[in-house]
Amino acid sequence: MTFWQITLELLHGFGLTCLLFVLTLLLALPLGLGLSFCTMSRWKPLRAVSRVFVWIIRGIPLMLFICMIYYLPGLLGNGSGNLFDSLDRYFTQLMGSGHLLYYGSFLAVLIAFVINYACYFSEIFRGGVESISHGQYEAGQVLGMTKGQIFRKVILKQVIKRILPPMSNEVITLVKDTALANVIAIPEIIKRAKDMAATQALVWPLFYTAVFYLIFVGVLTLLFGYAEKRLSYFKA
């Protein structure tokens, strides 16, 4: 295999990495915000349940959690086999594909990632919201603003400014965590590089994958830096 063929093969896998990254962000951010409201709820049962949930999810290694999501539905069911594996076969048949498609497994990984990251994000959101001085809410109240207006027009932007640094940390971690998808054989970039090592005795592509991550994380770092700069006009 030439260098370009290998690059192309890895890029293929990296596309999947990016897809998992983008979908996780899109779904976990709103879910995390909702979850953070639950953990801050004045209604104690909701607060307790959501905090225990966050504790459990954050306490389980993501790799293990992926395996749980992938294998547990099958084990808990009537023993008719793995749900996500069946989905893989179903789609393969449906599309008439020559090789096994991984849509079902990808769905399992996505579910695990979204739940895991929603929990981390929710704690970042909670920290941000709780760090805003109570006076900001009271100022809005005495000016006759509704709770929703106070949150959207006064609090939110201050929260965003404050959580950008921890958020960029977490988002960068997410980029690298996508590599965990290879535990259930999703052909993302690491899986492809490992396969090359196994089948063609090529080890260097595995190290070469670092370049892809570095570039991606570099772009993200620039984006977060830009966002921080855009919000630097005020102090909060």
Partner: peptide, 8 residues
């Protein structure tokens, strides 16, 4: 006492 202007 401490103003509570909206910083943004």
């Amino acid at each position: 006492q401490s103003f509570h202007l909206f910083p943004q």
